[in-house]
Amino acid sequence: MHITYFLGKIARALFTMVLVVTFVFVVLRATGDPAQAMLPEDATQQDIEHFRSMWGLDKPLYEQYGVYWLNILKGNFGQSYRDRRPVTDIMAERLPKTVYLMTLSIVFAVIIAIPMGVKAALNRNTFIDRFTMGTAVFGFSMPNFFLGILLILLFSVKLKILPSSGSDSWKHIILPLLTTGLAYIGSYSRFTRSSMLSVLNKPYIRTAIAGGLSRNRVIYGHALPNAAIPVITIIGATVGRIIAGSIVIETVFAWPGVGRLLVTSVGARDLSVVQAIVMLLSITIVTANLIVDILYGILDPRIRTKKGGV
């Protein structure tokens, strides 16, 4: 594999993250004053100034920016104005919850969606195809928050068999998992189907059949590895969005993860926390894209030899 190809990719990824952090830093400071959001309305001018000097908000913006980067490089993401605790501690509590929920949703979706898409492609225009694709369209066109509430109504309110909020037991994960999983199943299975359909007409599939291979070997050994390439992209995109994708779902199910933390921190203008989460969010997207690029190289040998790639 071309080492320059990957070094180029990594450099570009780092550059993107620097841009994102800078952008968030500027936008958060340009759109409002944390002192006003944090302190009570009747706070005196003195209180406000004290708050500002305590958090370094009275310094010029470029100095704050320099200090901010210096701290990041030291692994210090600042203190939460609200909790008065290091951001890293808060993240260490919240992040595993989000990763747990979202990873499980994606794994659940992949296990169901890929065989479903293959099945639909092999039975094109039959009842099986229409039924599975109908379910898929339902899955990804249904807004998360709406489906989540419907599931709560059914399983928590009406049937009273599953809890509607929190994360204390394995039962708590079922509803959020179903809600996010269904949306992912929708998009993964449609991609798998269309990708399979285009691959099944390729001459090398005819070669494999003419050589005497069994149907399963042709489908899973020859067609699927080729069809997987675009499917990997879409899975990679959702992996990259695990933090962003958790915002709505965690709010609906009161799941104590990073997504919910972001929503409350934005409301409170808790700058350090928001900055850290947005940074994390961009890191996951950029890293997931990087991994997808590398996976491409592994799955499709033709990409590896192209100089530089895109």
């Binding site: 059949i209 050589g211 005497g212 799955l299 499709d300 033709r302």
Partner: peptide, 20 residues
Amino acid sequence: RGKEIAMIFQDPVTSLNPVK
């Protein structure tokens, strides 16, 4: 197929699986 009667095709490059 392949054992008694084998077949080769017109476009050899696309007749081979590109990822294997």
